[in-house]
Nucleic acid binder design. Structure first.
Length: 500
RNA sequence: GCCCCCAUCGUCUAGAGGACCAGGACACAGGCCUUUCAAGCCUGCGACAGGGGUUCGAAUCCCCUUGGGGGCACCA
């Protein structure tokens, strides 16, 4: 490849950044970085009716979160701007006019109502081909003038050949041909003077010197239109590589439409939702790269540098893939475990603070979270799972059902005696660190003739209020002697209610 | 309905005519470890959708069937 690689991500600010869109961006980014090219971000904001005000910010934030930096586009500029289609209207109108003047396109005065009626009739009539009937394609100058006189503002439609076929090559899908007759003259310029996707996309890709187009395969069927447009303009089309879409976890239907999981739980589809759920951006990156592409048949975990070094369009898969949530969760756990403690602490902070109702500053001023990190890191798969493991350390007292304090195969009285003995032993310990605690409590279990699990289970419930908690000795050390003794005493009172 | 695309373990994938009685990973099951839960380690389960061809030889090429997906807007 002699030309500089220039690829683009062209989102429409009609909704938040979707995982599918993120994956498309990711592959474009990988390709650009692999070849030392440019990754361009272009905002296709030509649909004024579906515009969502905060969508743009969300898209930019989502891409940044994933580490997909763009070389040209919003907030970074570039030599091929503007990068918002809403600021390029004049150019689209110019080319639309040119197409009409040169006989490649024509004005169409059909009302939306007529088109809707037409479609309905075609459907009901069982017609094989649905679409515009080219009513205005052969209007005489006089007829056109008559419409104009009525004040009807026309749209501009592309004059697609009536016979023959268009063919193009796609790196992922190979050679694809389509009969021209099946392509209905598409609208290029809407009656409000704004371009449709087809027009704006082709003009911009050409003027921004885009060399490769990687996008979701829902676009595959519109390539023939674009090929005709490039031909009409006398431009060279870029290289196409359509990406197989991501299906929802059940494999039925695409991921984009929000659906329910088997358990009735909604699963995330927007990048912001994955972020809020506690997924790590580096895990998302790794995971997304593994759908439709494979870094190495034997290697699942790889860095972005490694991905860049091996990425090739020829290796892209052509079959659609169901979104494997299980694998994502596992991978996120892997990345959480690989994070340095201090880094994990920083990432956990906002999640835990919010859950606990504390400010980050307040949480930071307390020692517990930091101390718990090594104890919980291999127990969580999501950042949002940390709080339930440690919240007991942030409450004045724990609430536990008395019955739970009774040890396995023990009576309430025996449990109470064990707890009292433990409290006495703990009160007398010269130091209160995990190592010393383990040594002393193991000895105590032996002295009491109890299995370790029996004694430790009672203590776990008494001090944390939970049946599942971080490792006991470390937990006791973090709570500190004072709190541990107080909680034991409180638990003893509860057990007493069972023995009297 | 019409057009296009896709088809390997439940899922993500490796495989580009012989190296495949099909490899890896997740999930699942069992075991080890163990104070709970995890993590870790070991083992197991498990697929070339079906049918025709082509070929000495097919998961790999062709055709048909079936299944799935996408598209058919003055949306992108």
């Amino acid at each position: 490849m002699t030309d500089t690689v220039r690829v683009r991500m062209a989102p429409s600010p009609t909704g938040y950044l979707h995982v599918g869109g993120a994956r498309t961006a990711l592959f474009n980014w990988l390709f650009a970085r692999r070849h030392g090219g440019k990754f361009i971000l272009r905002i296709e904001d030509t649909d004024r009716t579906r515009y969502v005000p905060d969508a743009l910010d969300d898209i930019l934030a989502g891409l940044r979160w994933l580490g997909l930096d763009w070389d040209e586009g919003p907030e970074v500029g570039g030599d091929y701007g503007p990068y918002f289609q809403s600021q390029r209207l004049e150019m689209y109108r110019h080319y639309a006019r040119q197409l009409v003047d040169e006989g490649h396109a024509y004005p169409c005065y059909c009302s939306p109502q007529r088109l809707a009626r037409l479609r309905q009739e075609q459907r009901q009539g069982g017609e094989s081909d649905i679409g515009y009937d080219r009513h205005c394609r052969h209007l005489s100058a006089r007829e056109r003038a008559a419409y104009e006189a009525q004040g009807i503002v026309p749209v501009v439609r592309l004059k697609v050949p009536l016979e023959g076929e268009v063919c193009f090559h796609d790196i992922v899908y190979g050679d694809i041909c389509k009969d021209n007759a099946s392509i209905r003259d598409p609208v290029l310029l809407k009656s409000d003077g704004w371009p449709t996707y087809h027009l704006a996309n082709v003009i911009d890709d050409h003027h921004m010197a885009i060399t490769h187009i990687m996008r979701g395969d829902e676009w595959l069927s519109s390539v023939p239109i674009h090929v005709h447009l490039y031909a009409a303009f006398g431009w060279e089309p870029p290289v196409y590589a359509h990406l197989p879409i991501i299906l929802d976890p059940t494999g039925k239907g695409k991921m984009s439409k929000r659906k329910k999981m088997a358990g009735g739980v909604e699963y995330p589809v927007f990048v912001r939702e994955f972020r809020a759920a506690g997924y790590l951006p580096e895990a998302m990156f790794n995971f997304l790269a593994g759908i439709g592409w494979s870094y190495d048949p034997e290697v699942e975990i790889f860095t972005r540098q490694q991905a860049i070094s091996r990425f090739a369009l020829e290796d892209l898969n052509s079959s659609p893939a169901a979104f494997p949530f299980d694998k994502l969760e596992w991978m996120n756990g892997v990345y959480i475990r690989e994070l340095p403690e201090e880094e994990l602490y920083e990432r956990l902070l906002p999640f835990v603070a919010a859950d606990l109702g504390l400010s980050e500053g307040e949480l930071r001023s307390r020692p517990e979270l930091r101390l718990f990190i090594p104890l919980i890191r291999e127990r969580i798969k999501l950042l949002s799972e940390a709080t339930p493991f440690i919240d007991f350390a942030f409450t004045d007292q724990v609430h536990v059902k008395p019955e739970l304090l009774v040890g396995k195969n023990m009576t309430a009285a025996e449990s109470l005696a064990a707890l009292r003995a433990a409290r006495a032993a703990l009160a007398e310990m010269p130091t209160f660190d995990a190592e010393a605690l383990e040594k002393r409590l193991r000895l105590l279990a032996t002295e009491l003739g109890l299995k370790t699990g029996q004694l430790f289970g009672i203590l776990r419930l008494a001090t944390t209020g939970k049946e599942v908690a971080p490792p006991l000795f470390g937990t006791l050390a973090i709570l500190g002697r004072e709190r541990v003794l107080a909680r034991c005493q409180a638990a003893e009172r509860l057990l007493e209610t069972l023995t009297t």
